[in-house]
Write a protein that binds this DNA or RNA. Structure first.
Lengths: 188, 188
DNA sequence: AAATCAATTAGATAATCATCTAATTAAATA
DNA sequence: TATTTAATTAGATGATTATCTAATTGATTT
């Protein structure tokens, strides 16, 4: 999604070929011309040119004219840079701005009728949790609701208000005061 | 060409896709099921399965059954191992062996400096031969080289170009035309 | 300026691969 | 045991890409 990610993909794509890896290995020891690389790898010069172009695009190799030849060399700084990007932290950060609620939305959509009510309540824990996170949004944080009021709101989603109420409390999304007291939505 | 190389290619291929990198980024935060990842990435479950299989093949992710779901997680040790590959030494060692056999590789490694030059020339016949087989690869078969050109190429390996030149001819890996004529690499 | 030679570009082809739908498997609950 | 549900496999398709030959470019040497 982010630049970091796109940059990494480009570098990995450049490295994801046996012949290009061989080129890197060879250039790690000394510079070579296209012609020499072609001979060593048993490829035609245009093919090597193509590979070198890919490596060059991501900065992994450079070239320097030398007589008739242009000698390609390994750009070590690019290797170091890539290693820095390829860390758990950076990879994680690259997806931080991703839509983390997509799963919940999909579950709600799958269980919703056209009128906004829920067909049924999911049996699976994970899906029920997604539904509960959705339903609880109908309650204002910082306000108290009597039991009848709670049932009215939950009744808009499904007739089984008792289950919804119990699960909302059980999952910690709502709390209940004492025995027959009020309910409130827990701040997140 | 070697197994090492094939393994490296597989790892880089596994990482050379935007969605697979996103999966890694997500799993870096917490485990997810296939279904959840599919929702988050806006892909169908079979596609995510396919990506996870690729990542799993190279050991970057693992899975653990949990109720109906199988939760995938990041194998951090593999991530660290991959990260270390981004150095000149490692890529060179893992890849530059090309079609050398194990013995030659070991000798060359033992006598090579980090920059690819040779510390010294081995005194033992067998080891010197291994070095010569390695050095001669810098010459194109089917091309002729003047003495100066030969020295330039050999000079990249060691300052003692005279010995290298003499031994290359003596071992039959290269030939020389007449008295002061050109050199060429003998076809194998 | 003409000739030479390495490198690149253009264009074609065959292989690889990401993605989907449909069908199947595997695992867990009722 | 039957049912449910997530995951995987099978099969198809469109896009990407590695590789080749042929043509062109660009730069050096005569």
């Amino acid at each position: 999604m982010t630049d970091t990610n796109a940059e990494l993909v480009a570098v990995f794509k450049a490295l994801a070929d046996a012949n290009r890896l061989k080129i890197i290995g060879l250039l790690a020891r000394q510079p070579y011309s296209v012609e020499q690389l072609a001979a060593l790898l048993n490829l035609k010069p245009p093919t090597v040119s193509h590979h070198l172009a890919k490596l060059s695009e991501v900065g992994l190799v450079g070239a320097k004219a030398e007589g008739y030849y242009s000698m390609y060399y390994l750009e070590e700084s690019a290797l170091k840079k890539t290693r820095l990007l390829f860390s758990k932290q950076d990879l994680s950060a690259a997806v931080a701005d991703m839509d983390m609620d997509a799963y919940d939305r999909k579950v709600v959509k799958d269980y919703s009728l056209a009128n906004g009510r829920l067909k049924t309540l999911p049996a699976q824990r994970k899906k029920l949790d997604a539904i509960l996170r959705y339903v609880v949004k109908s309650f204002d944080p910082g306000r108290r609701y009597g039991e009848k009021e709670v049932n009215d709101i939950l009744g808009r989603f499904n007739n089984d208000t008792a289950t919804l109420r119990r699960e909302l409390v059980g999952s910690g999304l709502m709390r209940r005061e004492g025995g027959g007291g009020d309910y409130w939505r827990v701040e997140t």
